[in-house]
Design a protein around this nucleic acid. Structure first.
Lengths: 243, 243
DNA sequence: GAAAATTTGTCCGTATGTATT
DNA sequence: AAATACATACGGACAAATTTT
């Protein structure tokens, strides 16, 4: 883990160091011992005072990534990433397979509204057309993985929020509303820092990264049935695209 | 642009605001006027003092993204975010089309080495097989977009570094070495904070996010010809997957 | 063209956070 | 634990340039 930290960039040194250690952990840099190097060693590596390293480790401890034990050192509590294949048949629940036991989708809120320019464009509706909006969070074994804002054409899927709340899955909710199958048409992927609302929903700490997907699903005739903006906790997932 | 900024996270408010405005610009939020809202309006939106907004705009001005004119407002100079379609025929240089004038790939370094476990698995070679490694940075109109570490089977593409240095493109370098066509087989996408080396190569500041792709290309017979780990400056790009 | 309103630029001072010693 | 230095953030006031009335 070479390279010094930089000062006066708007990012506190303790945060830069926390980010670097978090990354090193997920890259498996300390797999040999299962521990982070001693604070004095880290301080020397990064060229900072030991107090600053302690601030960084305190933040990581708060996130549950490490656990400091007096007299022994700072132990790593490791977690694996879930893999999400993005294909024509992308499903949230399936595809996870043996990576987690239980996948659940929870409805945080919903409402009917008029499609703004962006939603209308993706759903191929006239601007102002009625749409159902849902706010959801999805969990793997009770660990939050992503939260999403998703829209459906209101005339076709009026009962969506109730169906989703019962089924805890878009696929099963669609089935209940008479749509037996659907396909992923387009996915856009970006990344950014998580906003306040998502931090809470995903149980993240400030500064955490989210992978953002904008995705559109259609029925088998190619008619858009869903547009969703999903935010995935970046350190818990990866996407794969098979061509 | 909803969502307040967060205090005492180790990330300065001006930095959070700069990131949000940069993102809003690249999303086309201010396309109507070609200008950022007045400082006082932004200050109210984010719930901070005008001086803090000014710090954020000063950073964006430094990056060349906006230009402030006394009495008029803050003009948008450059919209970032290039779109990279990820398809079976993913190319870095092409696909960009009219988004930038000149796409160049620069060779930072190279060498021959033995494939480690990961590289061998992706290239479907026996571990320890000789491979060519190249470190590259790719620029759109002289602005760095991504940097990559990429491996090729050494027996088949011994002249790769020299060919790439001359052609400034993987596609053209392959062509020169007798491989007329190739296809993208698999892409993995994650996100993380940029590491020190990449910060420098991509002209980013600490705390910046990179989208990381691990990609494997094959020839038309399905034989792996390249494995690459690329880091894209997250606020300059987005990926799209069309199914 | 003149006056008013808007918007960015600069200065002062104070309080708090960050990092070192 | 305490003292020091610097960065960050706020609040107010006014100047300078531009646009609107």
């Amino acid at each position: 883990m070479a390279g010094q930290v930089q000062r006066q960039t708007g990012i506190a040194l303790w945060r830069q160091i926390a980010d670097r250690i978090r990354q090193a952990i997920s890259a498996g840099a300390y797999d040999g011992t299962g521990m982070v190097p001693p604070e004095m060693v880290l301080a020397q590596q990064f060229g900072v005072n030991r107090h600053t390293v302690r601030s960084a480790l305190a933040a990581l401890s708060q996130e549950g990534i490490v656990r400091a034990v007096q007299g022994r050192g700072t132990l790593i509590e490791r977690k694996e990433r879930l893999n999400f294949p993005i294909t024509r048949r992308t499903r949230f629940t399936a595809g996870i397979g043996e990576q987690a036991r239980a996948m659940r989708g929870l409805l945080l809120g919903h409402g009917e509204e008029k499609a703004d320019e962006e939603v209308a464009r993706w759903l191929k509706l006239p601007p102002g057309a009625p749409v159902i909006r849902m706010e959801t969070v999805r969990k793997a074994d009770d660990r939050p993985v992503s939260c999403a804002t998703t829209w459906f054409p209101a005339d076709r899927f009026a009962g969506m929020p109730e169906a989703y709340e019962k089924a805890e899955s878009i696929t099963r909710a669609f089935a209940e509303l008479g749509l037996a199958d659907y396909v992923r048409a387009t996915t856009e992927i970006t990344a950014a820092h998580a906003e306040a609302g998502d931090l809470a929903a995903l149980e993240l700490t400030p500064g955490a990264i989210v992978l953002i997907t904008k995705a559109m699903n259609t029925d088998l005739e190619g008619v858009p049935v869903q547009y969703a903006i999903s935010r995935f906790a970046a350190d818990r997932v990866q996407f794969t695209i098979e061509n």
